[in-house]
């Protein structure tokens, strides 16, 4: 029989956690229920948990107004290129960061740190000018190019931390047998950091899927819409039909949420030392 104080404390903790969960989930739940309202009705007068006559009519309307199907396909294609590319280049750079020393390490670490500290908005203007001179605006190249630098300097750091935790003898032994950098990467380093790879892949997917600014700057035309751009187009159509807009928002959000739920144990697992700094 637990003491009353302890019981009170654990109940209040449960209550607090419950309130927090509700607070963080509420916007998403409201977005979903709001999208179920039939479009074309006058706006609700009061709070309604589930709209009357709930259905998927707003979703049909969303797909009619903008070419959402095409946009989703484009976004999937972009992610299919960017996620593997980010994983490869980030793990390469991370392995180099974990293994080198001296001036090589300083150069690399300095580059990564500088990249962490440069706001993306500080270079988008002249990056655009560079791609314009190269004649590459209007193509997918400017969107995919950041994947060549690992997607984000954060991913390089995650890999570097994970690789540092591997026993160095493994690498030394393989080197004595004449294994080059690429073989070390493929047959020793990468198989031992699967949780990190999964976490980076998920983060890279999020980055590519929700990228709004780059497509906004570089792409134009109906065929070149990505899912976030399609949602922006839907908004710019001046629709005051909130269910339709919310349905569009749900369509854009759902893949990201599903990917996260699939991989969340990698981030949020219970074991000590797990999570995205995983061993």
């Amino acid at each position: 029989m637990p003491s009353p104080v302890r019981l009170l404390r654990s109940t209040s903790r449960v209550l607090l956690v419950g309130v927090l969960v509700a607070l963080f989930l509420a916007p998403l739940v409201v977005m979903f229920t709001g999208s179920l309202r039939p479009p074309g009705l006058p706006p609700p007068r009061g709070v309604e948990l589930l709209p009357q006559g709930a259905g998927l009519a707003a979703y049909a309307s969303t797909f009619e107004r903008v070419p959402f199907g095409r946009a989703l396909l484009n976004s999937v294609l972009l992610a299919a290129i960017m996620v593997p590319l980010s994983v490869i280049t980030a793990s390469w750079a991370g392995l180099a960061l974990a293994q080198t020393s001296g001036w090589r390490w300083r150069t690399l670490a300095g580059a990564v740190l500088l990249l962490v500290m440069v706001p993306a908005t500080a270079v988008w203007l002249t990056r655009f000018a560079v791609f314009k001179v190269l004649g590459l605006t209007g193509t997918a190249v400017p969107l995919v190019a950041p994947a060549l630098m690992g997607g984000s300097p954060l991913f390089v750091l995650l890999y570097a931390v994970a690789f540092r935790r591997l026993p160095q003898e493994l690498f030394e032994a393989a080197r004595l047998e004449g294994a080059g950098p690429l073989r070390l990467w493929r047959s020793i380093a990468l198989p031992l950091v699967r949780p990190t790879t999964a976490a980076v892949a998920l983060l890279a997917f999020g980055l590519s899927w929700s990228n709004f600014i780059d497509p906004l700057l570089y792409l134009s035309g109906e065929d070149a819409l990505t899912a976030p751009l399609a949602l922006h187009a839907l908004e710019l159509l001046g629709s005051t039909q909130w269910p339709v807009l919310l349905a569009g928002a749900v369509v854009v959000t759902l893949p990201a949420v599903l990917a996260f739920l699939g991989a969340q144990r990698l981030f949020l697992g219970e074991e000590r030392g797990s999570g995205w700094l995983g061993r």
């Binding site: 709004f212 949602l231 949020l268």
Partner: peptide, 21 residues
């Protein structure tokens, strides 16, 4: 773990959808 997932979820929502919401 459920609570941790709930706390992380708003971060997953793409910027433009989040802003519209």
């Amino acid at each position: 773990r459920l609570a941790r997932s709930a706390v992380f979820l708003p971060t997953v929502v793409p910027d433009i959808a989040y802003a519209l919401l």
